[in-house]
């Protein structure tokens, strides 16, 4: 995005945020694995697989768009 300015691409920030959120949500899903929340379909543990998905997307973005020396 930023040939003129060499700004870190916005995708890197997206990756960092998703990675942090993914880890938090995944961890929260693991912690309540034995007593899942009383939400509808809580028994399929959406926090675990959604957290894992966010972690993977975030990690890919962070890796692909990490700041490199020009």
């Amino acid at each position: 995005m930023s040939e003129k300015h060499h700004i870190i691409p916005v995708w890197f920030f997206v990756g960092v945020l998703l990675l942090i959120y993914g880890v938090l949500i995944f961890a929260s899903g693991i912690l309540e694995f034995s007593t899942p929340p009383t939400t509808v379909l809580g028994n399929v543990h959406p926090a675990i697989w959604w957290g894992a998905l966010l972690t993977i997307i975030g990690a890919i973005y962070v890796h692909l768009f990490r700041p490199r020396k020009p």
Partner: peptide
Amino acid sequence: LARYCGPGLLGL
């Protein structure tokens, strides 16, 4: 949102 999302997902 409250129907399907527990802690963490609700925050998201």
